[in-house]
């Protein structure tokens, strides 16, 4: 029984780490630009597709996907910011959010039109046998996803908190005019935020590709989970996004295993509503609380 519980929790942490990385990408863009990027799921899907191309189609090693895909998706995201969203900067928030929603749909449908297949399978990263710790089977892939995704998330938080780039983004979020007076360029910071968001989405895609395969539905699945994780943790808090993702993953896994499999889908929305009603700033907000 304990080994089953261990496996369920581990599976929850694995998916939670992926949700955390997704939520972090959303939070980074939102924190710097005040835009909720609903195209983030489509960026992650493109990242997963990129790893299919590199690993399966071209037969290149996995590390090439981990190096190239995040940068490529980051460049795509920054280009979209430059070409499309920059022109909408003066528009109201609703217009920008709708633009990102339809941008995501356009990217997903573009992928569907060019590669019309139900699922593209990407092989596991490791072929070696799993570890068994106290009766719990731990595959190397599971370990890699958990450790890799969480380390990437922590690195991003560190950059955001202590790096000059992060300071610029936080300054822009706090007071645009003030940040400009301090020498930060709106264009530069916004583009950088979208680049960083794209990098995180690309990384999520590479991590998730062997876990779920690549399909158009991936973009919706990942953005939904990432958004819920972000709200639970606190949409302005990178640390909250990571903790929210882990909490969501484990809650989903436990409720499905010890409640009903149908509960897996509703538990995330139940958590979302509970947090919005009783703690709209999220469970782990930044020091200065802010409503979602």
């Amino acid at each position: 029984m304990l080994s089953q519980l261990g496996f369920v929790v581990l599976a929850g942490i694995k998916f939670g780490a992926l949700y955390a990385l997704t939520a972090l990408g959303l939070v980074v863009v939102h924190k710097a630009t005040k835009t909720v990027n609903f195209a983030h799921g489509a960026f992650a899907m493109l990242g997963a597709f990129g790893s299919f191309l590199i690993v399966v189609n071209w037969g290149w090693p996995y590390w090439a996907a981990y190096l190239m895909i995040p940068i490529a998706i980051g460049v795509i995201a920054a280009t979209i910011e430059f070409l499309i969203l920059r022109r909408l900067r003066q528009a109201d928030m609703f217009t920008v959010v709708i633009a990102t929603v339809f941008l995501g749909i356009a990217l997903s449908e573009g992928f569907r039109l060019t590669y019309n297949t139900e699922l593209l399978a990407v092989p596991s990263l490791f072929a070696a046998p799993p570890f068994i710790v106290a009766g719990v089977v731990i595959t190397r892939d599971t370990m890699w996803v958990i450790v890799g995704a969480l380390l990437a998330a922590l690195a991003c938080i560190a950059v955001f908190r202590y790096g000059r780039i992060g300071r610029g983004m936080r300054a822009m979020a706090a007071n645009i005019r003030g940040a400009q007076l301090c020498g930060y360029s709106i264009d530069g910071v916004y583009m950088l935020a979208w680049f960083l968001g794209g990098v995180l989405a690309g990384l999520t895609g590479v991590f998730i590709a062997p876990v779920t395969g690549v399909s158009v539905d991936l973009s919706i699945a990942i953005i939904t989970a990432g958004f819920v994780a972000g709200v639970i943790g606190g949409f302005d808090s990178p640390r909250g996004a990571v903790l929210g993702g882990l909490l969501l993953g484990v809650a989903e896994s436990l409720s499905a295993a010890y409640g009903s499999s149908a509960m897996k889908n509703c538990i995330s929305f139940l958590l979302l509503f509970l947090v919005l009603m009783w703690r709209p700033q999220g469970l782990f907000p930044e020091r200065s609380g802010r409503s979602v």
């Binding site: 496996f7 369920v8 139900e118 395969g213 699945a221």
Partner: peptide, 28 residues
């Protein structure tokens, strides 16, 4: 439809000591 995480269902099957599994769904 389109499920990718089967942890809960598999834990339930494991609890019941199932040794033969019939999967009714798509290849993915």
């Amino acid at each position: 439809i389109g499920a990718r995480d089967f942890t809960s269902q598999l834990v339930a099957l494991q609890r019941q000591s199932v040794d033969s599994v019939l999967v009714l769904g798509s290849f993915s």
